[in-house]
């Protein structure tokens, strides 16, 4: 009986030591090898729109609104979509980034990397998080895992991302993204659920993160499409301010945006 009691005590103590153990020296070393991307960052269009009126005072720098290199079949469909009045109106008349009537794809990758966003990057040995002020969180697993296989994987707006470090560059591989427009500003340009995204994210100077994004889509693109996104360090905010859409007063009525009373 005494032996059993002692065995129990030993087990309890051992278990508590495991849980109380600080980071292993191996993990601390892994942390030390990672780049320091602390602070807040913003997309190029966010930087331009930071005025009390919310209006850009300089030409935009959207990158994902370019003409994707579609294969012949999808080039025809893309051109037809450009001529579709409803598609045109989706940008010129009724574009909404959140709230009622906003399309689901505004919350999808890669749109969130080229939409008006402030975000934080959290780098750990196991994963890197892109925490967007609109609420989306990209999880980039860097623990050497593969994408889920078979029935364990299905399309989601942000897709499934794994990554690895090539020196100080984070290489991200994303698949299983819900098919649909690449950018909220270009609803005519759609990708299939077979789209494959490769990103190379690195600090190019103290206040600039660069994201070289290559999109492949065997169903729609004739060849890979690469764009360079640049994010600027936010120096005039000292804390992350979540952006909710709780007071949306811009309903769409008769195909036009309008203003609702308070």
């Amino acid at each position: 009986m005494i032996r059993v009691t002692w065995l129990g005590v030993v087990l309890v103590v051992a278990t508590s030591l495991v849980h109380a153990a600080p980071n292993s020296s191996q993990r601390v070393r892994a942390f030390a090898r990672l780049p320091d991307w602390t602070g807040l960052w913003e997309t190029a269009i966010s930087k331009e729109l930071t005025t009390p009126g919310g209006r850009s005072s300089t030409p935009g720098t959207l990158k994902l609104v370019g003409h994707p290199p579609y294969n012949p079949e999808w080039e025809l469909k893309y051109q037809a979509a450009l001529d579709n009045p409803a598609v045109k109106a989706a940008v010129t008349e009724t574009l909404k980034g959140c709230g009622r009537d906003a399309p689901a794809y505004v919350k999808s990758f890669p749109n969130i990397m080229d939409a008006p966003m402030v975000f934080q990057v959290v780098v750990t040995p196991e994963e890197t998080l892109f925490v967007m002020d609109h609420g989306e969180v990209r999880h980039i697993y860097t623990d050497h895992r593969a994408h889920p296989a078979g029935d364990d994987l299905w399309p989601t707006p942000l897709g499934d991302s794994v990554g690895h470090w090539a020196g100080q560059t984070l290489v991200i591989d994303t698949v299983a993204r819900t098919p649909g427009p690449i950018s909220m500003f270009s609803p005519a340009a759609e990708l299939s659920d077979q789209a494959h995204f490769t990103e190379r994210v690195r600090l190019i100077d103290a206040n600039t993160l660069e994201d070289q994004l290559t999109i492949e889509d065997p169903m729609r693109l004739a060849h890979p499409w690469t764009v360079i996104l640049r994010f600027t360090r936010v120096l005039d905010l000292t804390r992350f301010i979540p952006y909710e859409c709780e007071a949306d007063r811009n309903p769409i009525e008769n195909g036009k945006l309008t203003i609702a009373p308070p």
Binding site: T58, P59, G60, V91, T94, L95, K96, F185, N250
Partner: peptide
Amino acid sequence: LAATALVHAHHSGAM
């Protein structure tokens, strides 16, 4: 790009 200036942070500036 210049035309992009029409885009509002949350919605189109068309109205």
